[in-house]
């Protein structure tokens, strides 16, 4: 799979994406090292989801260099499970046709859903379905895991549990992660590096050199800085 010579899991140079006359991504450079956790912050319309779609290979109408040599998995904002396949079959979809029931159940156990292997997706709660979606993304041992606001549709309590889960899964499997989000706290809690995307361009980058698991208290200063980058005043937060 991963060639030892390859040091970066994602390498993007001069990426530009235009929709009609609108330039959604302008000359973006991005490197993600193998096993690195990067968060991409931005307001709606900043182009962050477009960038993720390009990395996922879903959008090829681009100019510039995009190099993602390894296996890529995506977890979307909606779990996008096939409702007519049982939960474990949805997970083994990640293995493409291989009848990997044992592997799928093991992946479900990692997200605490081994007991739901035989369930139908429509019987799951939003958080459970999203965990199945994570299991499906991880079961193929990706080199790069792209997370497109995967907690956006969940309630606050479930989201906290999901943060801890994602951190643990990342520790176990060590894929390079690109987390697209508009939640500053989420980005700072999880990522090694936080990029702020504005108007199609990466405007700043923050390294988060804090031990994990992080607590929110230690993030206050960094949080203010990032919010300022996003154009949010301290008074309004």
């Amino acid at each position: 799979m991963a060639d030892p010579v390859i040091t970066s899991a994602v390498r993007v140079r001069g990426l530009t994406r235009t929709f009609g006359t609108r330039r959604v991504l302008r000359d973006v450079d991005l490197d993600i090292a193998g096993g690195e956790f990067v968060a991409l912050l931005g307001r709606s319309g900043s182009g962050k989801s477009t960038l993720l779609r390009v990395l996922a290979g879903l959008d090829r109408e681009v100019r510039g260099e995009v190099d993602v040599p390894g296996t890529v998995s995506v977890a979307f904002q909606q779990p996008r499970l096939l409702p007519w396949r049982r939960v474990w079959r949805n997970v083994s979809l990640g293995l493409r046709g291989v009848d990997g029931r044992a592997v799928a159940v093991k992946a479900l156990a990692e997200v605490q859903l081994a007991g739901h292997a035989e369930a139908w997706p429509l019987t799951l709660s939003g958080g459970e379905a999203q965990r199945v979606s994570l299991a499906r993304a991880l079961v193929r041992e990706p080199d790069v895991l792209l997370l497109d606001e995967p907690f956006g549709a969940l309630d606050a309590l479930t989201r906290l549990a999901m943060h801890a889960l994602v951190e643990r899964l990342w520790n176990t499997h060590r894929p390079a992660v690109l987390l697209v989000t508009h939640d500053v706290d989420e980005a700072l809690l999880l990522a090694d590096r936080v990029l702020v995307l504005d108007d199609g361009h990466v405007i700043t980058e923050h390294r988060v050199d804090l031990a994990r698991p992080r607590d929110r208290g230690s993030l206050v200063d960094l949080r203010a800085e990032v919010l300022a980058d996003l154009g949010v005043d301290r008074e309004t937060t």
Binding site: V72, S73, F76, R80, R85, L93, R96, R136
Partner: peptide, 21 residues
Amino acid sequence: PDLLEAARVLGYTRAERVRHV
């Protein structure tokens, strides 16, 4: 279309997407 896209990301060919989705 969201489900088709998810299948595409998992590397499913057109024939496989027709069959599974």
